[in-house]
Amino acid sequence: MYRIAVVGDYDSIYGFAALGLDTFPVNTHEEAGETLRRLAEGEYGIIYITESWAADLQHEIERYQGQVTPAIIQIPGIAGNTGAGVASVKKSVEVAVGSDILFGN
């Protein structure tokens, strides 16, 4: 069975532990990249990552986009929503249903 992880700064993710999710607070770019790689290659089917860290690790995240697992989903951090997570989900849905072909996006 796959597990669910949350990656980001401590203040943004500590509440997810109360929901039973595995939290991985990170402080540096290197630490965040290594954590994401370890989780993606392990038993995690869903990895939530704060938008700010996702922006820093975009090249890492792209390597997993063609795979079924893990699903890497951006979430707002404590600083608020940047809209980046919504844009990536919208594009994924458009590709999945074929509206990118219909509307020429």
Rank of each mutant, 00 (worst) to 15 (best):
I72Y: 04
S52H: 09
V26Y: 00
R63Q: 15
I78K: 14
Q58C: 01
E60D: 15
S92L: 09
A71G: 13
V97C: 08
Y48I: 04
V89K: 10
A40T: 01
N27E: 14
Y64N: 08
D22G: 05
G66C: 11
T23H: 00
Q67S: 13
I46L: 11
V7P: 00
G77V: 05
I46E: 05
F103H: 13
H59E: 14
F103L: 15
E34D: 09
I75G: 06
G15E: 08
I73R: 02
Y10S: 06
G66R: 09
R3I: 05
A79F: 11
T23K: 02
H29I: 12
I47W: 01
I78R: 02
V93D: 07
G85M: 02
A79C: 10
D11I: 12
L19P: 02
Y10T: 03
S99P: 07
I78H: 05
K91V: 10
A18C: 12
Y44P: 07
L39D: 06
V86I: 14
Q58P: 01
D100E: 14
K91F: 04
I47V: 15
A55S: 12
I49F: 08
A32K: 00
F103C: 07
L39F: 02
K90M: 14
A84P: 04
P25M: 06
A32Y: 03
V95R: 15
I73A: 01
A40M: 01
Q65N: 06
I4P: 01
R63L: 13
H59T: 11
